[in-house]
Structures are given as structure tokens and as C-alpha cells.
Design a protein around this nucleic acid. Structure first.
Lengths: 328, 328
DNA sequence: CTGTTAGCGCCTTCAG
DNA sequence: CTGAAGGCGCTAACAG
């Protein structure tokens, strides 16, 4: 691999000059710039990113932390988060390293911090954080790293939060279902206890039902298809509609209803393609996870540039999913 | 962040000595080693990985290349590949960078090579490569990087291949289905044209049918649930059983059969959790993608250590999946 | 506008 | 067994 020296020699200039054109410094004459660029092309030169990172004050890496298998996910969500984040990071020329919560859970805050620092990470982008992830919560609060939380309302001077307005989204989908079917008694299958998103969603349904004067029964389904199925089998018949905090639960609810051979409108949350297998049209909230991830990385860049943390709200859509709409 | 110098001062030794204990050199007395380790602990020191990478001849990074959304995947497979690979890499203290085919497809071999070199990558672990991925095929063949291909039979001095024996697996599952239902006429829904795995699977079914003197009809379903459904709707009734090159197709086939209200045994391939939604018991081949990925990374390490490329065959299982066996 | 010169933080011969 | 010194490839003042 050709080095910067070779380029300098080839172009007949000093290494620093080459460095300058590489990093788009203003004060280089067009001529020498051309010379250098020609040499670069000729030698197929590309600066060694490791060396550059070591020597320069450029921002360090950003670590993507994924809480695998926690959301309603079935991997689809995580994968979209990941690819969106990685894509945007490359675009922004940010180095990333990918980590899973499971790799950190058993380590102390100190260890994690040391590890991240040793890897030259300066910013964190965290997906799927919940209050139960104690160490990672502490990591965020420690302020050692600029961090962007997706789906967790943590905002401070150096931590931003990016998400869809969970309250509004849940409210909207409930309303859509309401308009269509005019239910009187609602069964709400809530998600995990200490999940930030779930609290918002739950509140939305509560408020909605209050406003419309509907009876509301809340059950904890923990994002689980199975639990949802069991709950609905047991008490589903007593309600006019089932609103779910996740698509997976909606599928479970649907399965139960089909088995009981009764009809009740059901709606989900997330818009994962698995919904295509629900066997019936369903209403759900569609979140664009790729977009969310890309926005999160952009936000991380902002923080790295020294700007202050903030909350970024992304739009959502309420959609009807047909059987196999989504899967090719 | 404490540096190696701080540790040296704290321990009252030279930096080089610290470095030696860090890298487990043999010639350090136990006493000084203890002193140094104490200092390390006291200062929460961790060597800067970037600097270490730059200065030492330690192996470079390994790039994980994922062909997102190509297999029967629905993300589950890719996610397991990814987490397995990343986990093992951390265990082996190998630095990884994750890339998706889609980020490279439009670039030239030269560009990709330059980029990878600039990122200090020395080894590639490639998931889901097919003959159609021209550039990446060339990348592998160029020999510039040690590479491990999962699901592609590329073996040379510096490239290994890790996979489940596709022929045997497909043969086994066909046999299992045969024993159970004694079909005479088989419909085989094959996968994508230029996929390495598909060719092996197809050959296995051909051989099996020949041996058992069964009528075999092969149709291209391209791993698509929809195509599988359409094919089975059209001609499924004429056959006694449907063997599929992927679970997704098996689900499609099942959906079609259910719609037609006829029973035909169906089997799939991969063992993804989506099979839990097929609505009926199904036979399939279960591959442990996490394990495959971990093995692939280990193999990459071997190559990095200078050993020669080879083929590594991993075991598979033929399993029956019940409704929601797999999804919690 | 261009070149010279220190480092970045660590590893690694090579003397002692 | 330990320490001093050079260098990995590049960037960033600082001179010129």
C-alpha cells in the first residue's frame, strides 16, 4: 500500500502538503492540488484511517449499542436500525463499532467506559434502552460520552433523544380503530414494564379512552405473542376491540380470536413485515426504523461537533397492512 | 484517560516494560509484572486500541460483509450471523467493521480494495455471497484479503469456506418427509438461480428422487413466499408433497394449500422462527447461524495466522417445528 | 502558499 | 530481566 510519503515524492511536494489536500485545507494552490491528486490517483492511494485517527483531533468513533431481541423486534427492527446507522455513518465518514447489550450487561460501568475509551469511541447511539438496563443507563448518565438514545427520553447537554412521538402515534392508531369500529370496551395489551415507549403508549390509550368515555382494561403482554394469545383467549371475548403495544402482540391476539372464531378489531404497533402473516388486515403504526437510525447518527454527529443535546421527533404513519403486503 | 506513560511512572518502570506485560511477553519478572498490573488497575488503564493497531504488527481488522435480504432471511438469519460474528470477534480480540453488500455494489474492485486497506482490514468474512455478486466475487478472487465465505464453496490458499453440508441437509429433510408420507410425486421449489447453496440443495433432491424413483418437478421460487404461493396454487394439487429450498417458500406453499383446502406435506429449509407462524407442523432443516458465524470468525483468525484455506462443514438438524415453538 | 518538525500512544528491536 | 530510542502513517502547528 502506498503511503503519504510516496504520494509526496510522486507529486514532488512535502507530505504535509499532501495531507492538506487530503483534508481539504483552504490554503493550497490549485496547481499543486492537481499535482497531488494526480499522484494520489496514480498510486491508488488512500490514507490509512487508523493513523489518521491517531494523529488528528478528528472526532472518535461512534458505538452503536443494540438491545437485541427486546422490542417487538423479531430482528427486523434491529436490522433496520443497524443498517440505517451504519449507512449514515459511512456517509458522514464516522467510524462505527457495533455492540450488543448482551456483551456489556455483565460488566461494570468502569470496565465498559474503559473499553469504549480504549476503542476511541466518543459517541454512543443506543437503541432500545429501558430502565432495566441499569449499567447502560448509568453509562449514559455518566456523561463520559456524547450519546443519542433512540426510544428513551434522555436529554441533557450531551445527550439527545430521537424517536417517534409514541404518545401521539398510539393515540392516532387508537383513534383510527375507533372510527372504524366504534368499540365501547377496549382491551389494551401493554408492553414491558420499564420500557419508556410503553409508558407513553399506555398513557395515550388511557387518555384516549377517557376522552371517548370507553371502558379500558390494561393487561401486560410484555411484547410477547404467546402472552397476548393467552390473555385474549381468556378475556378477549369480553371486549369490543384489542389494541396492542406491538405488532407481535397483535398477531397473538389475532391468532386467539381466530381460534375462538369471533371477530374483534385489532391493531398493532411498529409495522413489521411479520404483520403480513397475521392472516387478516390489520391497522398499525408504521415507524421507519432506518430513517430513525440515520437521524440518530446525524444527531450524534451534531453532538460531536459540540452542539447541545435535544429531542428530535420523527413522523409516523397509521397504516393498514394486508396479508403479504410487505413481504415479497 | 491514563496513558501507558502514567502507568509506567506509577509502577516505577519504563514504558516498554508496561507494554511487555500488556502483551504477555515472557521475559518479565513476576514482581515487576505485579507492580505494573497494580498500577494498571489503579489507573483504570486500557491501551488505546488505535495506537496499538498502528504501531504493532498485530493482525488488522476483519470486515464482516452481509448480503442483507438475500437469503430466505427476513433479517433473522443476518442478525444471527452478525451477532455471532461480532461476539466471537470480541472474544478473539479482533477488531471488526460491518459492511453491507449494498454499500459496495456500485463501487469498483479497486475502490473497494483501497477502502478496505485504508481501514486496515486484512480479512473478510462474507455471508450470503452468490455468483451474481460480481464485484465481491472478484474481491475474493483477488486474494488481497484473507477471506472466509459462508455458504459459498470458495476455497484457496487464503480463503476458507464455512457451511452446513447443503446437499446432505436437503437430502436428509427430503428423506424425513418421504418416510413420513411416502409421496410419489414431488414438487420442489428451488431458490435463486446463481446461489451456491441452491445448486447443492437442488442436486440433493434430484438425486434423492432418482434413488427412490419419484417423479420430480422443479420450479424456481426464488426464496419468495409469494412466488411459492402462486406456484402451489397453480400446480400444487398435482403433487403429493412440496419440498422447499427455504422456510419462506414453505410458508407460501402452506398458505396456498390451506387456501385450496387440501393437505400435502411440506418441508422447508433454515429453521427460522417465522416458521412458527406457518399454522401447522412443518419439517425443516435447522441451521445454527450464530454458530456458523462464530466458526467463520475463528476460521478468519486461522487464516490471519497464516494457515491455509480449507472447507469447514458444520452439522445440521432435521426438526419438526410446532406452531409457536420458536417464538416466545 | 509550501515545507519542516514534532508528536498521537503504543510496540519492538537492541543494548545494557 | 529492564530501559532507551526509533518508528507505525498521518496531522498540525510553526516557520519560511
Amino acid at each position: 500500500m502506498a503511503g503519504i510519503k510516496d504520494v509526496a515524492r510522486e507529486a514532488g511536494v512535502a507530505v504535509s502538503t499532501v495531507s492538506k489536500v487530503l483534508n481539504n485545507y483552504p490554503n493550497v494552490s490549485k496547481e499543486t492540488k492537481d499535482k497531488v491528486n494526480k499522484a494520489i490517483k496514480k498510486l491508488d492511494f488512500m490514507p490509512n484511517a487508523v493513523a489518521a485517527a491517531l494523529s488528528s483531533k478528528q472526532p472518535g468513533r461512534v458505538a452503536i449499542l443494540i438491545n437485541q431481541m427486546t422490542n417487538a423486534s423479531i430482528d427486523e427492527v434491529d436490522m433496520q436500525y443497524l443498517s440505517g446507522a451504519i449507512l449514515k455513518a459511512r456517509e458522514k465518514k464516522l467510524d462505527v463499532i457495533t455492540l450488543f447489550f448482551s456483551m456489556l450487561g455483565d460488566k461494570s460501568l468502569k470496565e465498559i467506559t474503559a473499553y469504549l475509551k480504549s476503542q476511541n469511541v466518543e459517541a454512543l447511539v443506543i437503541f432500545g434502552l429501558s430502565k432495566d438496563d441499569k449499567v447502560i443507563m448509568k453509562l449514559v448518565e455518566s456523561g463520559e460520552f456524547k450519546t443519542v438514545c433512540v426510544d428513551a427520553p434522555l436529554v441533557s447537554d450531551n445527550t439527545s433523544c430521537v424517536w417517534v412521538d409514541q404518545y401521539e402515534a398510539q393515540y392516532d392508531v387508537a383513534e383510527a380503530l375507533y372510527k372504524m369500529n366504534k368499540p365501547k370496551k377496549i382491551l389494551y395489551l401493554s408492553g414491558k414494564k420499564n420500557s419508556f415507549v410503553c409508558e407513553k403508549r399506555l398513557q395515550a390509550v388511557k387518555d384516549f379512552c377517557k376522552k371517548k368515555k370507553l371502558t379500558l382494561k390494561v393487561e401486560q403482554a410484555d411484547f410477547s405473542e404467546k402472552k397476548a394469545r393467552e390473555i385474549v383467549l381468556k378475556i378477549g371475548a369480553d371486549y369490543d376491540a384489542v389494541i396492542c403495544a406491538s405488532d407481535l402482540c397483535a398477531i397473538g391476539a389475532m391468532m386467539a380470536l381466530t381460534k375462538m372464531d369471533i371477530f374483534r378489531p385489532v391493531c398493532g404497533f411498529d409495522g413489521i413485515s411479520l404483520m403480513g402473516y397475521a392472516g387478516r388486515q390489520m391497522t398499525t403504526v408504521k415507524q421507519d426504523f432506518t430513517e430513525i437510525a440515520m437521524t440518530a447518527v446525524e444527531e450524534a454527529e451534531r453532538l460531536l461537533l459540540g452542539e447541545a443535546g435535544r429531542e428530535v421527533i420523527l413522523p409516523h404513519k397509521v397504516v393498514r397492512i394486508e396479508y403479504l403486503d410487505v413481504i415479497h
